[in-house]
Nucleic acid binder design. Structure first.
Lengths: 203, 203
DNA sequence: AGCGTCATGTAATGTGTTACATGATTCG
DNA sequence: CGAATCATGTAACACATTACATGACGCT
């Protein structure tokens, strides 16, 4: 494991998307450019190197599809090791550090955990997220109180913005956890093994 | 102007902090490490190079303070050009792109604009921010509607998170603009010229 | 014949992160 | 005296961004 267990946001996103179903690099480019996807602006210059790095690390494997046409296309899918690495990453607890400077990453974890590990893990992430925020909020309020009056209103307002955002985060997490629990259709997690049980229909 | 007009978040933050009052590199390290400051984790390895780059670009000037002790300390302050560059940057309109992938930068702009350009500019930024968000929200809601049912609930919830966050952003911006307008103490902007009118008392 | 899109990349560049290095000063 | 803190940096590294390059395919 040359890159130990780091998994940058970009690579996590790629692994998660490939866990949904195999895709080509170009497919990923389109996903990132067309959907909101948590603020990735990502361009080919970021995606293709990341794919190669993931392939070198043995987490994904590309299969060249030459199908009759002469234009080669690489379709990537997760390897067993990649699946394992993704799951390990998704199972990590939500820390205060995540809350402070990686809340986008938590969102990614939530979405992929729901698909890959099942609803229970998604709910766990939501609740840990909310809990960490709620334990962090008093600190922020104390910081707000501690601000010297001389500092002027702008720093105070900026800090208040942070507080408002965290509150909204926590509210969203609680609300979403509740919704997920209420819908009793507790579906099992998606299968992402290499040997799918059901045939894929190609319409 | 070797680096044209780019001004990364880091450099903007440094310029803004130096506009408040001159500081040393170490002072900046402390500010970034002790206060929340919008999610900068920033360490010496980022700050000192940025300072040198800003100095090369002529936006700030360091003055060595040898004062009796043998340990040199660089105190940086904005040059006239740096002040001008900062103001130009702060006066830029808030775009949808800012909203989509740089809302932290907007916050920084707001806080520094209030101090450097005065309350009116700060309010302008808040209102542009809110307006851009409110014009972006329908798009996001449409994306939410357009999500295929088959995609499962997690992507939908993640998107809903984005919507909730933007709503909270807009609410905060409207609220803050209102508060700033209500307090009739329309103070003039801070002086950041190199020739201060009032003597600085050194207690 | 030419343009846009599909599909894959590479190169240059800048920037942040982590970790380490180096001395001086202050405090117990 | 030794430890923590002040204060300044450097080196190695990974990473993303922008811009460019290449070539096939489909449409007009």
């Amino acid at each position: 494991m040359t890159p130990p267990n780091t998994l940058t946001p970009m690579k996590l996103a790629i692994l998660g998307l490939l866990a949904q179903h195999p895709r080509s690099g170009y497919d990923l480019v389109k996903v990132f450019s067309e959907t909101a996807m948590g603020g990735f602006s990502s361009s080919p210059g970021a995606i293709y190197p990341a794919l190669k790095s993931l392939e070198r690390a043995g987490l994904i494997a590309g299969k060249v599809v030459n199908q009759s046409t002469l234009r080669p296309r690489q379709i990537y899918k997760l390897t067993a090791q990649g699946t394992q690495s993704l799951k390990r990453h998704l199972r990590q607890p939500v820390t205060r550090d995540d809350v402070m400077r990686n809340s986008d990453g938590v969102l990614l974890r939530f979405a992929f955990a729901g698909e890959v590990l099942g609803q229970d893990e998604a709910i766990r992430i939501l609740e840990e997220f909310a809990r960490e925020i709620e334990s962090y909020l008093p600190d922020l309020k104390a910081q707000l109180q501690a601000l010297p009056k001389a500092a002027g209103p702008y720093g105070r307002h900026a800090l208040q913005h942070g507080i408002d955002m965290y509150r909204a985060d926590a509210r969203w997490a609680r609300k979403t956890a509740k919704e997920l629990k209420q819908q009793t259709t507790t579906r099992p997690p998606m299968r992402i093994s290499n040997a799918p049980r059901t045939r894929i229909r190609k319409p």
